[in-house]
């Protein structure tokens, strides 16, 4: 039973992303949206935690990255960028969705 985890808070303000990754199981996906996309920037403590966890796939929402001036070049390794359709596909692919607010 896989889960799509969505996170929408900046990892520098709240522990949502860190807690989410710590609770995600093998085969789960973590999708960063809104202010959580700052967690996708390479060279940060948040990105290091994402890179460490090889059991889960990591996604970030493109429109939210663009809004915040975060180009692909700034992203940590292993972060997959998806658009709104990709968001929907992820929701369909997984058995349930959990929001980390």
């Amino acid at each position: 039973m896989s889960i799509l985890h969505t996170v929408n808070k900046s990892p520098f303000e709240k522990q949502s992303l860190s807690s989410c990754v710590a609770h995600a199981s093998h085969g789960d996906a973590v999708l960063m949206i809104e202010d959580a996309v700052y967690g996708a920037v390479s060279g940060t403590a948040a990105a290091a935690q994402l890179e460490e966890n090889k059991n889960i796939s990591i996604y970030a929402l493109g429109p939210d990255l663009n809004a915040r001036g975060l180009g692909e070049a700034k992203l940590a390794e292993g972060v997959n960028v998806v658009d709104y359709n990709g968001f929907v596909e992820l929701a369909v692919e997984h058995d349930k969705t959990q929001s980390w607010l």
Binding site: S10, E13, G62, N66, A67, R68, G69, L70, G71, D83
Partner: peptide, 16 residues
């Protein structure tokens, strides 16, 4: 803190 993100260059909000 997160306020530094306000000054990022290349912001494009067309899709949000």
């Amino acid at each position: 803190d997160d306020g530094v993100f306000q000054l990022m260059k290349g912001q494009d909000t067309a899709d949000i």
